[in-house]
Design a protein around this nucleic acid. Structure first.
Length: 482
RNA sequence: UCCUCAGUAGCUCAGUUGGUUAGAGCAUCUGACUGUUAAUCAGAGGGUCGUUGGUUCGAGUCCAACCUGAGGAGCCA
């Protein structure tokens, strides 16, 4: 029988000096001299390692040889005050068991800095690095905080389908779901694909948003949220797009656009605060990592604030709320616009904002998170509520420095006539969406909701630069390994 | 998908205007060292220079195509 193990996090925080205990984990490095070996052991419970001291004579060359970077061991011994600098306590091993060796000639992780690009190629091993274990712990904390936030607000967590049949949501290219033998796809009389013979007897795809189903639930439970995977078959190759990502989509009955913005801002701040309160060690590590990386950049590209300063700044300041119309005026009168520094010069009202414009507003003009609202209806989705000016809809996007759009939402059009008119104008096939339209036919109420890109949030909180490094196994065009 | 840049040892990189046997640091291995902190010191092994084709007496270096990666744009969360 093995002794019960203690997680290293608790060993380091409680420091039960003099007690005998067992720890288990993976070896980060081993430093050996003739008489004694020092093993830096990490079990993922914390960014910090526990130093295990192994007497060379006691354990012998054969055992110590197996203890290499990446090997997994169990060590039992007494926790004592450390004789060396660098740690306050250490475990003097009386017993060591090697669970699994890691051939040093083949194990790709070394006790040195690796590039994020290299680690992406070994995504199955990268959680064993400081950076990725820290990111994953923060990711967990944020996911937990999402549920806690909504639970405190008496929202209900609902699960919307991952496989859907309607392609009418207009949120981008979809992945098809089929049971067909692709080498021999059944055809109908017109020569098209005969979906009647497929598993669902109709065309099906992976969801691009849980919003429409979320609205159905909100029309009964008042306040709901979804938190699930989302799929977009867009050929996007950027630091902030994934083909498979996680999205949080609250939907609230009786909320207007302002209520919606209030909730989104409160939620983002709650998540940031939760991370600051609960992930201090990991954030300190990530802050240092980001600062080191910054040193390699030219002066003008370096961050003005450290990671935690940035998080506190978001927490302590109101987001700037500006209407699309005001934003266009600001942009039109801005220096880069007048000097034609923008690739897309703002001529007038109605233009879609390019990311250079969003960056200008967030990073140069306001220097804080910005909520843009009341967009022209022609550049937004069919379900957004039409304003009385007949030009704009009650949409809102939250823009974060360095990330861009982190939240996109709107007040939904609850008036049947307005909605069906808009659907017709935008060629949305109503016959596929009767179930959705029923919410407008029966007991329609004003309601609102938004979508928060979970990985984009993690990007902001961890200070990482590429969305592929904040999800364990990223799916992007041409990449579906692991 | 478009634009730009990159691909040299396990990793991170250097390699002059094309010119003999392609280098460094780290990692690995061997040895030294009574407590180290990405330990230190000494030595060793390790390369079809992304792929294919071309120019040339001669290509890591020049040209073309392709592959892979990164950054930016678009799409968006």
């Amino acid at each position: 029988m093995r002794e019960k193990r203690t997680k290293i996090k608790h060993v380091l925080s409680n420091e039960p000096l003099g007690e005998s205990l067992t720890v288990m984990g993976w070896v980060r490095t081993k430093r050996a001299s003739k008489s004694v070996a020092f093993i830096a052991l990490n079990d993922g419970s914390s960014i910090n390692n526990l130093q295990v001291v192994a007497d060379a004579e006691k354990f012998g060359e054969e055992l110590l040889r197996k203890i290499t970077t990446g090997a997994s061991i169990s060590a039992t011994g007494k926790l004592v005050e450390s004789q060396g600098a660098g740690q306050t306590c250490e475990l003097v091993a009386e017993q060591i068991e090697v669970f699994g060796e890691a051939d040093p000639d083949k194990y790709p992780l070394q006790p040195k800095k690796h590039s994020l690009e290299f680690l992406r190629e070994i995504a199955h091993l990268r959680p064993r690095t400081n950076t990725f274990s820290a990111v994953m712990r923060v990711r967990h904390a944020l996911a937990f905080a999402v549920h806690q936030f909504f639970n405190e607000k008496e929202f209900f967590y609902i699960n919307t389908p991952i496989i859907t049949a309607s392609d009418a949501e207009g949120a981008g290219e979809t992945f098809h779901v089929t049971n067909f033998d692709l080498a021999n796809v059944p055809k109908n009389d017109e020569g098209g694909v005969d979906y009647k013979q497929d598993f669902f007897e109709k065309e099906a795809n992976l969801t691009v948003s849980g919003q429409l189903e979320g609205e159905l639930a909100a029309m009964a439970l008042s306040d709901i949220y979804t938190f699930g995977p989302t799929f977009r078959a867009e050929n996007s190759n950027t630091t902030r797009h994934l083909a498979e990502f996680w999205m949080i989509e609250p939907e609230m009955a009786f909320y207007d656009l302002k209520d919606n913005m209030d909730l989104a801002e409160e939620m983002l701040k709650y998540l940031v605060k939760y991370a600051l309160d609960n992930c201090a060690d990991d954030l300190a590590f990530l802050e240092k990592r980001a600062a080191d990386e910054d040193k390699n950049k030219p002066q003008n590209e370096r961050a003005e604030m450290t990671l935690t300063e940035r998080l506190r700044f978001v927490l302590e300041n109101d987001f700037e709320r500006v209407s699309y119309t005001e934003a266009i005026e600001i942009l039109r009168n801005s220096k880069p616009n007048k000097k034609k520094k923008f690739s897309y010069v703002i001529e007038g009202w109605g233009a879609d904002l390019q990311s250079e414009h969003e960056r200008f507003l967030v990073e140069k003009h306001f220097k804080k998170p910005v909520i843009l609202f009341d967009y022209p209806k022609d550049i937004k989705a069919f379900y957004m509520r039409q304003n009385d000016d007949e030009k704009t809809v009650g949409a809102m996007d939250i823009l974060f420095p360095g990330i861009g759009e982190i939240v996109g939402g709107s007040q939904r059009e609850e008036r049947m006539d307005k909605l069906s008119q808009r659907m017709e104008e935008m060629d949305i096939p109503a016959e596929e969406m009767e179930w959705y339209l029923d919410t407008r036919r029966f007991g329609a109420v004003p309601h609102s909701g938004f979508g928060l890109g979970f990985e984009r949030m993690i990007l902001f909180v961890t200070g990482m630069g590429n969305i592929r490094d904040v999800i364990p196994f990223p799916r992007t065009p041409g990449n579906c390994e692991f």
